[in-house]
């Protein structure tokens, strides 16, 4: 995750670890303002699958809905069940067998699940899109 953010030139700042040990909250600093992100990591889906849903806990939804700046939920999918296979070290470098997908959740309302479409793969282009969305929410509608 950090690699993608820093490749795009936007610093990622980890905030406080959530009560859920696998959840990390953080801010991505765009030029004029920040966006909030929540990351979940799982190996129960396949990277090649169609989409994923993740239960939206009530206290998350409350926080997301209250947040004025964009909040993105990121699902990192690890394609192996054996965690020793997640990181592949080989002579030309280190590969992670993982892919990240995202969805904006700050107006999720009372939906029980976060639905993450597989076409929303997190890439550098995504961060440019987020940067625009952050800018937009400071402009009159």
């Amino acid at each position: 995750m950090r690699a993608i953010f820093s490749q795009a030139g936007f610093p990622f700042k980890e905030t406080s670890p959530d009560e859920d040990a696998m959840a990390i909250d953080g801010d991505v600093d765009f030029l004029a303002a920040s966006a909030r992100i929540q990351i979940k990591c799982t190996s129960q889906f396949k990277i090649s699958g169609r989409g994923a849903t993740w239960p939206a806990e009530v206290h998350w939804r409350d926080r997301w809905n209250k947040c004025k700046i964009p909040v993105y939920f990121i699902l990192v999918i690890l394609d192996h069940n054996d965690r020793f296979d997640w990181v592949q070290h080989h002579s030309s470098g280190t590969d992670q067998q993982a892919a990240a997908f995202w969805v904006r959740v700050d107006s999720i309302g009372s939906a029980d699940n976060v639905v993450i479409p597989k076409k929303q793969r997190l890439t550098i282009a995504t961060l440019n899109q987020w940067a625009e969305e952050v800018e937009e929410c400071f402009s009159p509608r």
């Binding site: 700042k13 905030t15 801010d27 030029l31 004029a32 303002a33 920040s34 004025k68 700046i69 964009p70 952050v134 800018e135 937009e136 929410c137 400071f138 402009s139 009159p140 509608r141």
Partner: peptide
Amino acid sequence: RPPGPAGTMWFRSGGRIGIPDIEGEDPYL
């Protein structure tokens, strides 16, 4: 600038900063 749904964008030569309308304290922001 006139505010948007998240807050107000402030401008000065060479920079712009979005100040969100946050309630209470948010040290990270």
